[in-house]
Computed example of a mutant assay.
Amino acid sequence: MSLPNEIQPTEEELLWMYEHMVLSRKYEERIGKAYLEGKVPVFNMTKGPIPGEMHLSNGQEPVAVGVCAHLTDKDCIVGSHRPHHIAIAKGVDLDKMTAEIYGREAGLSRGKGGHMHLFDPEKSFSCSGIVGQGIGLAVGQALAAKLQGTGAVAVAVTGEGAANQGLFHESMNLAALWKLPFICIIEDNKWGVSVSKATSTSIARNSDRAAAYGIPGEYVEDNDVWGVYSAAKRAVERARNGEGPTIIEVETIRMAGHFVGDPETYVPKDELAARRDPIDVMGERLEKEGVLKPKERAAIAEKAEQRVEQAVEFACDSPYPDGDEAMQNIFA
Rank of each mutant, 00 (worst) to 15 (best):
K233H: 07
E289C: 07
R275W: 03
A232W: 05
Y229H: 02
F259M: 09
A232T: 09
A235Y: 07
G257W: 11
I248C: 05
L292M: 15
M255D: 01
R234Y: 00
A231C: 09
V260W: 06
E287K: 15
Y266I: 10
R276P: 01
L286I: 07
R285E: 15
G283L: 08
T265H: 11
F259W: 14
G257Y: 11
A235V: 12
E264I: 10
P268Q: 03
G290W: 05
D270S: 14
S230Q: 03
K288P: 01
G257I: 09
K269C: 00
G227Y: 09
R276W: 00
D262T: 06
E243R: 09
R234L: 06
E264M: 12
S230D: 01
E243A: 09
A231Y: 00
G227H: 07
G290P: 02
I253M: 06
F259T: 14
V267W: 05
I279C: 13
E251P: 01
G227F: 10
R275E: 01
K233S: 01
I248F: 03
E289P: 08
E264R: 10
D280M: 11
E289A: 12
A235K: 08
K288W: 07
M282D: 02
A231V: 07
R254E: 08
V250H: 13
L286A: 07
R234V: 09
A274T: 08
E287M: 15
L292A: 12
K269R: 00
R238D: 00
K293P: 10
G227D: 08
I248M: 06
V228A: 04
A231T: 01
R240V: 10
E271S: 08
G242K: 06
V291G: 15
I253V: 14
I248Q: 02
D280P: 03
V291S: 07
P263T: 10
E289S: 13
R254A: 11
P268R: 05
I253T: 11
R285N: 12
A232M: 09
A256H: 15
A231H: 01
K269E: 14
H258W: 05
E284C: 10
P263Y: 12
R254N: 11
P278C: 03
